[in-house]
Design a protein around this nucleic acid. Structure first.
Length: 483
RNA sequence: UCCUCCCUAGCUCAGUUGGUUAGAGCAUCUGACUGUUAAUCAGAGGGUCGCUGGUUCAAGUCCAGCGGGGGGAGCCA
């Protein structure tokens, strides 16, 4: 057996002092020809391995370069120096893999996030990214735990879909047809997809929601958690072409139930991270505080990372209707002083400056905005009854988070067949192609609701990372598909 | 896609009104030191100034095109 090692996280608890142990990991620094800081990814804290002078030959010691991998056996002892409680007194030292220090890109010094983004294959070995991706893992686990404990069924919705009706964004085409122009064409010049692999035009999914609704009509409570794809040419710090989304879909739920679920969900995830990853959160908190110090005072965040997370967990989210939100904006001194670039009026699709004002200036906490004008929302959202003519609204809700903007988008779904069909027709959505979807409304339709939470945006919120490309291992963005 | 800023050593940056041999800190290498904490001290090596073209006696510096990146906007999660 090769893997008879003990993880560094375990060793640092100090329970094995006095015992002979085996450690494997990577060299972070080698100081004074005596002290190796070894990291194995189980924690950001390094284990100090002490090589006493004269025990190992110079040839071996020279190979202890940053990034090299090691196997060390020795006795775990209470540290003789300050700065750590335990250290490993090396008895044997084996270099598993050398790392040419002239070529290894990660140096024992600060690197910019932009530089590390281009070295995404190695950036896990840095403290910042190790903390981020351990948190990402924890949050992913917590998502399954949250829904599993509530009796939800994890439904795997397809990655390749034929429907392009949802209109959530531009889609990536999936095809095996030749791209050299020799693909068969129809009389009108369009590509003849009957010859394609699936016999029709197919795409990568933009959302698992419609399939999720099918599951909810049998299991009552389902959720999806998987990758989604948008071919939008978005170049921002909060958009990816490939991202992960969590989409619960719940039968016998109205908009209020939906909001309750979303709020409990977000608070659960943050609480889980604080209970299981506090060390990493503290590291990121300190990193962020350091970064804030570089900024001019008027651009600094009001709260630290952990402080912000505590506030979200400890306070109810603010809930306002779209109409109230518009009213708040219109009455704001910000509006009266004409500080908004875009005008405010009932019916507009709020701009990010408006959302930011509500969340960051007015309420200073997460805000749930409900009942948006029907004209600016998707076809499947439930029309509210008793609306004033020309001011129809739908039972939609968006959760806006400080610093990130929209983190959740959801709604109660239109369960009434005639109203749904009328809405689809008005929005030019082909009813025949969506017949499978409409069957849910034909056979035992029930009120139901669901939402989508962008996983990376959630990871951004919890880690405080400003750029979404730094919270997914290998980011896919326009003009960038490395690794 | 639009607006804006940027691209100089491995990294982070400086480089004056265009003018000799393009600099610094860190990293790396060599040596010294040896209970260090991003060790310290001394020395050394390291550059097609993003690419292509143009203006000029002369371009890292000015102009144009292309490529890449940051920030903001739109679209959204």
């Amino acid at each position: 057996m090769f893997n008879n090692r003990t993880k560094i996280k375990q060793l640092l608890t100090g329970t094995q002092v006095g015992q002979e142990v085996i450690v494997m990991g990577w060299v972070r620094t080698f100081r004074n020809n005596q002290f190796i800081a070894v990291n194995d990814g189980s924690t950001n804290n390094n284990l100090q391995v002490v090589v006493e002078l004269g025990i190992f030959d110079d040839e071996t010691l020279k190979r202890l370069t940053t990034g090299a991998s090691l196997k060390v056996t020795g006795e775990l002892i209470a540290s003789l120096g300050k700065g750590q409680t335990v250290e490993l007194k090396a008895k044997t030292l084996e270099i598993l893999g050398d790392s040419d220090s002239e070529k290894y890109p990660l140096q024992p010094k600060k690197h910019s996030l932009e530089f590390l983004r281009e070295k995404a294959h190695l950036r896990f070995r840095t403290n910042t990214f190790a903390a981020v991706f351990r948190l990402r893992h924890s949050l992913a686990y917590a998502i399954h735990k949250f829904y599993n404990d509530k009796g939800f069924v994890y439904l795997h919705t397809p990655i390749i879909t034929a429907s392009d009706a949802e209109g959530a964004g531009e889609m990536f085409r999936v095809t095996t047809l030749p791209m050299d122009g020799t693909a068969q064409k129809n009389e009108d010049g369009t590509i003849n997809y009957t010859e394609d692999f699936f016999g029709k035009s197919t795409n990568l999914t933009v959302s698992g929601q419609l399939e999720g609704e099918l599951g909810a009509m049998a299991f009552s409570d389902v959720y999806t958690f998987g990758p989604t794809f948008r071919a939008e040419n978005s170049n921002t710090t909060r958009h990816l072409a490939e991202f992960w989304m969590i989409e619960p879909e719940v039968a016998f739920n109205d908009l209020e139930d939906n909001m309750d679920l979303a709020e409990a969900f977000i608070q659960y995830l943050i609480r889980y991270a604080m209970e299981h990853n506090m060390e990493d959160l503290e590291f990121l908190d300190a990193r962020l505080a350091e970064e804030e110090k570089q900024k001019p005072i008027n651009e600094r965040q009001e709260f630290g990372l952990i402080e912000k997370l505590k506030m979200v967990v400890d306070n109810k989210f603010e809930r306002i209707t779209y109409t109230e939100a518009i009213q708040i904006l219109l009455e704001s001194s910000h509006y009266k002083k004409k500080k908004f670039k875009y005008d405010v009026a009932w019916g507009i699709d709020m701009q990010s400056e408006h959302e930011r004002y509500l969340v960051e200036k007015h309420f200073k906490k997460p805000v749930i905005v409900t009942n948006y004008p029907a004209a600016i929302k998707a076809f499947y959202m439930r029309l509210n009854d008793g609306c004033e003519a020309g001011k129809e609204t739908v039972a939609a809700m968006d959760i806006l988070a400080p610093g990130i903007g929209e983190i959740v988008g959801g709604s109660q779904r239109e369960e009434r067949l005639e109203k749904l069909e009328a809405r689809m027709e008005a929005m030019h959505i082909p009813l025949e192609e969506m017949s499978w979807y409409l069957d849910t409304r034909r056979f035992g339709s029930v009120p139901h609701a669901g939402f989508g939470l962008g996983f990376e945006r959630m990871v951004q919120f919890v880690t405080g990372m400003g750029n979404i490309r730094d919270v997914i291992p290998f980011a896919r963005t326009p003009k960038n598909c490395e690794f």
